[in-house]
């Protein structure tokens, strides 16, 4: 319960930061892009005999920057409300982890591509790498919180880490491909 509460407190703080950085006139754009990211994350990928669907956390952070924070919150809210994924009590913790990871992704991407805006292959690799690290960071945070919740959650934390490790790799590759293509057809989406 204390972790759930801490999650909500952290989420409120990060949301306040995200909303402060979101200009009033950008609100429709953030919402529309947020909806698209949310929808795109419903696409299933076939990997061998199984299929997975992604979070698109890295891609959202790279394109929306700090404005990704309210978009992530809206996405998680509708995931809980419309599709009953996850509970409302864990919404705070999930949101806080995703928002922190998104900020990490945005700032490291911006820092690494500074002054290299004409090197599209380099930017794509950075996007892929940063996304991989972002998903891993989110995984480590979730697993740590699970372990902190009690020894009985250790098994769950291990299962979660293993499955998300593979997801991080797929997500990194996919983000790299999408950013590479975006740089050719709509560079302002990545470099603005």
């Amino acid at each position: 319960m204390s972790i759930c509460l801490a999650g909500y407190v952290g989420t409120v703080a990060l949301t306040a930061l995200g909303l402060k950085k979101t200009e009033q006139e950008n609100i429709p754009a953030v919402a529309v892009m947020g909806a698209a990211f949310f929808t795109a994350s419903l696409i299933h990928f076939r990997i061998g005999v199984t299929s997975v669907h992604l979070t698109l956390l890295g891609l959202t952070a790279i394109i929306l920057g700090v404005k990704a924070i309210p978009a992530i919150l809206a996405g998680l809210f509708f995931q809980a409300v419309l599709f009953q994924h996850g509970g409302i009590s864990t919404l705070g913790v999930n949101a806080m982890i995703m928002m922190t990871s998104a900020l990490f992704c945005h700032y490291s991407f911006t820092l690494l591509i500074k002054g290299k805006h004409n090197k599209s292959l380099y930017i794509s690799f950075v996007a892929g790498g940063v996304t991989l690290l972002t998903v891993l960071l989110a995984t480590v945070m979730t697993s740590s919180l699970l372990i902190l919740s009690g020894d009985e959650f250790k098994g769950l934390a291990l299962l979660f880490s293993v499955s998300n490790g593979t997801l991080a790799l797929i997500e990194g590759v996919l983000t790299g491909i999408i950013i590479n293509r975006l740089l050719k057809i709509k560079p302002e989406m990545v470099l603005s």
């Binding site: 529309v32 947020g34 909806a35 809206a74 509708f78």
Partner: peptide, 16 residues
């Protein structure tokens, strides 16, 4: 601001 984002997101999720 957050409510505005939620309302617009709701509309466009269905469209997308």
């Amino acid at each position: 601001k957050l409510i505005s984002i939620l309302i617009s997101t709701y509309r466009y999720i269905f469209l997308y």
